[in-house]
């Protein structure tokens, strides 16, 4: 089954592409993810329940639906896509950037949930103390709230990264299955399964997917534990 322990060019392509798309997905979702998590954790406003619902949609909708909605919005004829194409010359469908958008959207709820939980765990009394020491809202966020929420932000980031790596439905719908461009690990695996006689190659990719997912989960746990130890409140 594992004829060779070295990876073929196609396998390397799929892995590197997956990592690139996963990282890009996390990179673009992190700032809005933290901002929305903060809004949900610390602010009361009209439409909060609606925002919360929208953020969670990718968790409950079939991924294909998300991919289809992205095509409608970001396709060349889509309202946002048209503006992106004509204004900035950017076209997302059928590109690896498009795959990063699709997997980012799918990973977004996991990121927001983890960050929100850790922001809520930050004692508002510390923020009030910083406030009375002359710090405005932005400084409080950067120096108190965010640093104390770092364990959750790290967990959320790696969770979102793992989710983005494993994204399939929305990606294939929105970005298609183009070798070297949008054929990530899950898509490559799917392609192999469709072909007769490729069972061994499929099994190898399957094993690779498990290894990468495990590594990122372990990394997430380790980082979060270290961050927690550093900021332990009492009797550290």
């Amino acid at each position: 089954m594992l004829a060779s322990l070295t990876l073929s060019q196609a396998e390397w392509d799929a892995i590197l592409l997956s990592l690139r798309i996963g990282m890009s997905a996390v990179a673009w979702t992190l700032p809005p993810g933290i901002a929305i998590a903060w809004l949900l954790a610390r602010r009361e406003f009209r439409g909060k329940a609606l925002l919360d619902g929208i953020v969670h949609l990718p968790l409950v909708l079939p991924p294909v639906v998300i991919g289809y909605l992205l095509l409608i919005a970001l396709g060349r004829q889509g309202w946002l896509g048209q503006w992106l194409h004509e204004g900035l010359g950017v076209s997302l469908p059928f590109t690896w950037q498009g795959a990063a958008v699709a997997s980012g959207v799918m990973a977004f709820p996991l990121l927001v949930r983890a960050v929100r939980l850790s922001l809520e765990a930050v004692d508002p009394k510390l923020e009030a103390a910083a406030n009375t020491l002359g710090a405005g809202r932005w400084r409080i966020f950067c120096t108190i709230t965010l640093p104390l929420a770092i364990p959750g932000v790290l967990t959320g980031t790696l969770l979102a990264f793992a989710r983005a790596l494993s994204e399939f439905g929305a990606t294939i719908t929105f970005a298609s299955n183009i070798p070297h461009e949008t054929r990530t690990l899950p898509l490559a695996l799917y392609t192999l399964i469709q072909m007769p006689g490729k069972e061994a190659a499929a099994a190898r990719l399957c094993l690779l997917a498990v290894i990468i997912a495990m590594l990122s989960l372990i990394a997430s746990e380790t980082l979060a534990r270290r961050a927690r130890q550093r900021t332990r409140q009492r009797d550290g």
Binding site: K125, L126, A128, A129, A130, T132, L133, T143, I144, P147, L148, R230, T231, R232, Q233
Partner: peptide, 13 residues
Amino acid sequence: IGIVFQEPRLFPH
């Protein structure tokens, strides 16, 4: 206005 609260509220990090 400087405040000393009942509990010290030091920033743990």
